[in-house]
Amino acid sequence: MAETIKVAERLGLGLAIVQARKGIDADAIGHALGIDLKDGPGRIGDANLSTIGTSPGSWFVMGEQASDDWAERIAVTVRGLASVFDQSSGYCVLSLSGPAARTLLQAGAPVDLDPHQFPIGASASTSIAHIVVLLWRTGEDSFDLAFYRSYRESLEHWLTDAMGAL
């Protein structure tokens, strides 16, 4: 069963928390960033730039193949509209894929991952093995999860045990 799950770290990502300034709505920020930003959970965007709403007026923003000054450039782009907090080193992002990926994550997360309840693009802030995790579905059999980098060994320990138990 364990062979039917692939775990890979997503490297080279630019990550940031973007929080709207007072009186500024998602549209204005989205317009500046060039994406259709919305308030609410769920992932919007593409590999180049995507966002996940984590609370009112606050988004977890990601960009692939990010330059060293990625977060600073985002900050310049949304100056006056939002505050930007670089998290490129703060989170570890893992991809889990394969026919058993959903079952594995369901063992750890108390969130309904049924494809009808959690389709591609859905996101949830939840916890796995006492570690706070931001989880989103990227494909029929694939999910990404982001969590504080310091918890990495503990989360991987849980992954190993849970995969062995399936």
Binding site: A20, R21, S89, G90
Partner: peptide, 14 residues
Amino acid sequence: PELDVQAASVSEQW
């Protein structure tokens, strides 16, 4: 809530 201020933890970033 009338103040225009944003805040986030960066404990893990640095």
